[in-house]
Design a protein around this nucleic acid. Structure first.
Lengths: 206, 206
DNA sequence: TAGATTGTTAATCGATTAACAATC
DNA sequence: TAGATTGTTAATCGATTAACAATC
């Protein structure tokens, strides 16, 4: 599907936004859209939108623009969102439960199918359809590609090591700690404290 | 404190990470550090670290490097983290409570001092030291600079409008919706779904 | 002093954007 | 066809990095 040319992370990062905008347009009954209009909504230039798409092929009709339905289908495919993706959640605290119940995940075809924790008080408890399991029993043949770490900073590296052992492919890390993992493992850090600090910086200057 | 030259957001975004690394070094008793070593930990080039600092003045001693203590102090000042910053939280669901209890905020001198929600079942409930208040009673003279939106997508824009009326300066937005706000208001979006989708992309290619 | 490391300049790299031929 | 809009190239812009004089 993809061309050989290297696709920057910045480009990839914009696709979920494009997809969201297109879904909203579809909701409103829009059938066709120009790069001009969608880029305006995404706060990027039209040429950037077209360039981003161009890494993955041709999507539109000169003169008329893009079919919303068709473009959604293509972007869903690029992001591999057409089939359901399972994720394992480690950490059943406030943050973990918030993520488990986060409606956006379901809408995008992600599902947290197993939850692990180390607190005896939590292990065995049912939440929604699934039961919180003992982290010590994390199986080696987990067969789930995505891991979400929502444990305190101190435990994060240990959990990451366990997930790597369980042959996870990617980790979404909320612990606020830089994880050390093999290069094949993709890690994305969401650092809530940093986000607030950056916001604060821009609020304090001026 | 700052020079006239425009400082890119990418530069600012790296400072919290530098600060965290320095704090960890201080914990371990390190007194002096070279750009070489700190950059290595931050996964950037030494020259990038030095350039980032250079926007804010001179911090080190040629030949010996940087005083960890002194550099922490300077970065804390750059990020305006020396005094306590209050934040108002809107949304007392799982995510809101997770943020309220997030230990990182306190460590960095942020404190959520008021929580608002619209659910009668939640209003009036005590959590920690504070009581969840009715969002309809959000005062116009709130006098809190930072707002955190942790409400469902549908409610987000309404809440943003209310916060703007209450003279908030910046918003950390977890709703997954692009907010429309006056240009003077700084908004940072943390979109959990996008993060998972981007992670998934990199897990699925290869 | 000699060695080390800074702060800053200039070169490089990569990402964004304008422009336009191709095409519906 | 004429008007509109694409996909892509080439120009521009901005961020990263290497290199080095200054300096501790």
């Amino acid at each position: 599907m993809r061309k050989k040319e290297k696709i920057s992370e910045k480009t990839i990062t914009r696709f979920p936004l494009y997809l969201q905008i297109l879904k909203d347009l579809q909701q409103k009954g829009t059938q066709t859209i120009s790069s001009q209009l969608i880029a305006h909504q995404a706060l990027v230039k039209a040429s950037q939108f077209r360039k981003d798409l161009s890494y993955f092929g041709e999507f539109g009709k000169p003169g008329s623009g893009y079919s919303v339905e068709h473009l959604i289908e293509r972007i869903v495919n690029i992001l591999s969102l057409s089939c359901r993706h399972q994720a394992v959640l480690v950490g059943a605290g406030n943050l973990g439960m918030a993520l488990y119940n986060f409606p956006g995940f379901k809408e995008w075809n992600f599902e947290i199918t197993r939850i692990f924790d180390n607190a005896p008080a939590k292990i065995g408890k049912k939440t929604g359809k699934i039961t919180i399991e003992n982290i010590d029993k994390l199986p080696l043949d987990l067969k789930i590609p995505l891991g979400i770490i929502a444990v305190p900073a101190l435990a994060a590296q240990t959990i990451a090591d366990l997930l790597v052992q369980s042959k996870i492919k990617g980790i979404l890390n909320f612990s606020g700690v830089k994880l050390s993992t093999p290069p094949a493992i993709m890690v994305r850090n969401v650092d809530l404290t940093y986000e607030l600090a950056i916001l604060n910086y821009y609020c304090c200057i001026d």
